[in-house]
Design a protein around this nucleic acid. Structure first.
Lengths: 149, 149
DNA sequence: TCCCGATACTTGAGAGTTCAAGTAAACTGG
DNA sequence: CCAGTTTACTTGAACTCTCAAGTATCGGGA
């Protein structure tokens, strides 16, 4: 007894998918082109830059950027190769490792941010009036809420 | 003179990104787990199944599924290996090739669809009331519109 | 104390995506 | 009519992501 989608639902679903894909791809392309990193890596640098002492445990960082541990581990490995992030073993619990944003990583982020913010405005904020923005955020929060448990 | 995001804007942006990533990842995982294909491949099968004679030119198909030609070319190559899609050179214009959904491909799609639709309901429709759905669609349409030129 | 099951993270292989470059056919102006 | 451009698609290499399996460490009970 499949509850198939009617035409309106089809349209709604495809519009949502297309819009979110479009925005993400644009932003990803912009960062790759102008700063040589995918959006996922940028998110890692941002979260680290906002953390106390610019460092976070891998598992915490993974949660913050909505990434699997595996994905983050690979990502940090690449960022480490570039010298933008450094890993430190935790003395108290040797299983955990801290990801630390290096000064070079911070500088790269600082250089990337203005262009990225501008792109976000062009692909997102500049297209919506305050009312639409508010409603969209509310609705996205609903979609997210169920993810908690 | 970067127009930085204020706190509300930060929140709105991160909520939108997180929600659209969450939904897409859930659906992608569901299809991979239950039907052994990523969402992008599923979309190809769907578009072909809806086309006259279940066939489409590669470039048209790419546009329909919001994919680059390169991505589609690789995707159709994989789908062809599995026998779900077949390629045919066009006699009138030998540059173009048609992607044709095979009977087996149609059967695979028919088998995958119910589970996928159910997942879409759980991750999306069941969480929104009709008012929210309508508004979200309207807003996504705005985000998309600019992509046309 | 020793063992067993969590916990934290890493690793490797396989798959998909991207970008740039490559092929081939069709059009187009001199 | 034929050089040069455009169009349609493919290919290969580099890179990211996923999934499953692996390593190391910690905590709690017998």
């Amino acid at each position: 007894m499949t509850r198939w989608l009617d035409d309106d639902e089809q349209g709604a679903w495809r519009t949502f998918l297309a819009a979110s894909q479009l925005v993400q791809e644009e932003l990803d392309r912009q960062l790759q082109r102008d700063s040589g990193m995918p959006h996922a890596y940028y998110a890692v640098l941002v979260k680290l830059s906002e953390a106390p002492d610019r460092m976070l445990r891998m598992s915490e960082l993974a949660a913050e950027v909505n990434s699997s541990q595996s994905r983050l581990s690979h990502a940090v490995a690449r960022l480490e190769e570039r010298g933008w992030v450094r890993r430190e073993r935790c003395a108290a619990d040797k299983r955990v490792s801290w990801a630390v944003l290096t000064d070079e990583g911070f500088a790269v982020l600082a250089a990337a941010a203005p262009g990225h913010v501008e792109a976000v405005r062009q692909s997102f904020f500049d297209l919506l009036d305050p009312e639409q923005l508010h409603r969209l955020t509310e609705i996205c929060a609903v979609l997210l809420k169920r993810a908690a448990p």
